[in-house]
Simulated assay, not measured.
Amino acid sequence: MKTGRLYLIPVPLGQTPVADVLPGPVLACAQRLVHFVAENAKTARAFLKSLPSETPLQQIEILELNEHTAASALPQLLAPALAGNDLGLISEAGCPAVADPGAALVALAHQRGVQVVPMIGPSSILLALMASGLSGQSFAFHGYLPSGPQELGTRLRELERESRQQQRTQIFIETPYRNRQMLAALVQTCAPSTRVCVATDLSLDEEQITTRTVSEWRRQQHPEISRRPTVFLLQA
C-alpha cells in the first residue's frame, strides 16, 4: 500500500493573521487535511478554524505529541500516513520539529518510508539570527540553558569561550517569565566586548530586536521582555 505524506505545517508565532505569514500553498495544504498530530490540540483547532478548514472541525482527527508522549505511542500517531492518508504535523513553536517534540515523529516517518514535506513558515530562531547582525555562517542552537544561577553562569562562560574560538553565534531560549534573569546573567557574566542580541515577539506588531555589546547593555536601559517570547543570541 502506498503511504501518505507527512506535511510539516508552520503556524504563526502569535496572534498574527495567518495570511500575513504563511504562503498560499501552506494554507491550502492545511485546509484539505483531515489527520493531524499537534503539540496542543486546542491551539491546533484554533489555527484550523482561522483558515478555515474545508472539513468541519469535529470531523478532523488531531492527536497530541508533546514532551510527555512515550516513544511507544509514535507508531499510532503515524498510523494515518501508513494507511495511505496525508498527515499534518503542527507545533507550538512556529516550525514543526525545530526545538519541538515533533522531531521524533519525523524520524519515525523516515524509518517507515513516509515522505516528509517541510513547508515554509516563520521560525523564531532563524528570524532572530537574520536580524541580529551576528554570524550567520556558523551558529548553534542550544535550547534551554540551566536555570540555577551558578550552573547558568558556568554554561554561559562555556558558550562564550566556544563562540570566541569558533567565531560562532550561540542561540538559546528561556521560559518567558525568566527572561529578565537570563539577560541579567548575560550582562553580568560575559566579557564587555561580547555582543548580545535580544529578539522579542518576532513577527508580531510588538516585535523588538536589540543587539549591543555587553558593555553597552550595562550602561543602557533594558527593554521590557518579561513574559514575552524571546530568543537570546551571543557572539564573542
Rank of each mutant, 00 (worst) to 15 (best):
Q167N: 00
L126Y: 13
G136F: 01
V34I: 15
G136D: 09
E151S: 13
A99P: 00
G148R: 14
A73Y: 07
A128K: 09
L74N: 14
V98F: 03
E224F: 03
R228Y: 06
L82G: 01
Q170P: 05
T211M: 09
E158D: 02
H222L: 12
Q165K: 12
L74Q: 13
A44L: 03
E162F: 05
A44N: 09
P192R: 01
P118V: 00
L74K: 07
L65G: 10
Q115W: 01
L74D: 15
S147Y: 14
V198P: 11
L87F: 00
C197Y: 02
V116I: 10
R161H: 03
A93L: 07
S50K: 10
A191G: 12
E158H: 13
G84Q: 05
A73H: 09
T175P: 14
R218M: 10
L186Y: 01
L78T: 02
A97F: 00
L13K: 06
A19I: 05
R168C: 06
R180L: 11
T43C: 04
A185W: 00
R228N: 06
T154D: 05
R45V: 04
N179S: 04
L152N: 10
Q111W: 08
V116A: 11
S193Y: 15
L134H: 02
Q220H: 04
A104M: 01
L202D: 08
A71S: 12
R168Y: 00
P122A: 04
I62K: 05
A83M: 13
L65D: 12
K2P: 04
P223R: 04
Q181L: 13
G88M: 07
A41V: 10
L202S: 08
A19R: 15
R218V: 07
D20E: 08
V26G: 03
P223H: 05
H222R: 11
A19H: 12
P17M: 13
H110G: 15
Q115M: 11
I60V: 10
E206K: 14
D86N: 00
F36Q: 01
N40G: 04
T3K: 15
Q150F: 15
D86C: 06
D100P: 08
Y144T: 08
S163N: 11
Q221R: 12
S132I: 14
I125T: 10
P12F: 13
T16H: 11
L186I: 05
Q31S: 12
T210L: 15
T194I: 11
H222E: 03
R5V: 03
